[in-house]
Amino acid sequence: MSAAIERVVTHGTFSLDGGTWDVENNVWIVGDTREVLVIDPAHDAASIAKVVGDREVTAIVCTHAHNDHINAAPELAERTGAPVFLHLDDRLLWRQVHPDRGPDGYLSDARRLKVAGTELVVLHTPGHTFGAVSLYAPEMGVVFTGDTLFAGGPGATGRSYSDFTSIIRSIRDRLLVLPPDTQVLTGHGEATTVGIEAPHLQEWIDRGH
């Protein structure tokens, strides 16, 4: 069986710089009937583990280290025995949430992760956070963008460890160069495609300034 994608929507809060907001997160599960990879384990490890079932979890991958994308990672790792991966540049954000438990390994640009015969390529896409990454699965025609690119524009950059110029550069040079029919699966909200978003780049730049 070829790899498929499942979405689990979890509910919780996002906290940074003294503020807290209610959020819904997309947790993505990529794999087949035997093994899966989990992207952005948010809020509710039990619900994620229930969907995983008795399948092997080969890796837990965090697109960035905001608390709402990593708060369930240690518990899910304990439940499944899977390693947790994050980009090194987000280690300070991680420590704010999990000071006593680090990731099991660090992601780097162009690293390849394999699950159920499918390869996901790590794209370092800083801006929303310094260590934000996207995961591109060319065989599936999908890119998981975390909070870097949404339907309607880039992720927020008005808080600590973020930078607007960097996120625009990441979107322009790493994401919008992918095939136009590439499906963009985001950290919150609904999916979009590279072709839908690409024409609006200049609007985002103008709005950001």
Rank of each mutant, 00 (worst) to 15 (best):
184 V>H: 02
85 F>Y: 15
86 L>M: 13
8 V>T: 06
126 P>V: 05
29 I>L: 12
111 R>H: 12
94 W>E: 10
124 H>K: 14
79 R>A: 08
34 R>Y: 03
206 D>P: 00
136 Y>F: 14
4 A>P: 00
55 R>D: 05
33 T>N: 13
168 I>D: 13
123 L>F: 15
196 I>L: 14
93 L>D: 12
181 D>L: 04
71 N>C: 15
68 D>T: 10
29 I>Q: 06
194 V>Y: 07
140 M>E: 10
98 H>I: 05
31 G>T: 02
185 L>T: 00
106 Y>G: 11
158 G>Y: 02
35 E>Q: 03
155 G>H: 05
45 A>Y: 04
170 S>W: 00
161 Y>E: 08
177 V>K: 00
74 P>A: 09
49 A>T: 00
121 V>E: 13
62 C>F: 05
22 D>F: 11
64 H>R: 06
70 I>Y: 00
186 T>W: 06
201 L>T: 02
29 I>E: 03
173 D>T: 12
104 D>A: 04
21 W>M: 14
109 D>Q: 14
161 Y>F: 11
111 R>Y: 03
57 V>H: 01
193 T>E: 06
100 D>L: 12
51 V>R: 13
58 T>F: 03
50 K>T: 07
190 E>Y: 11
125 T>H: 04
113 L>R: 07
194 V>E: 03
116 A>V: 06
48 I>A: 09
148 T>S: 15
159 R>H: 09
54 D>T: 01
94 W>I: 00
121 V>I: 15
126 P>H: 11
148 T>Y: 08
166 S>I: 00
74 P>K: 06
72 A>K: 04
181 D>A: 12
159 R>P: 02
155 G>I: 01
194 V>F: 06
137 A>Y: 00
32 D>C: 03
204 W>A: 06
100 D>G: 11
186 T>P: 15
149 L>H: 07
101 R>F: 03
96 Q>N: 07
103 P>K: 09
155 G>A: 01
139 E>W: 07
67 N>F: 05
50 K>C: 09
32 D>N: 02
173 D>I: 08
19 G>C: 03
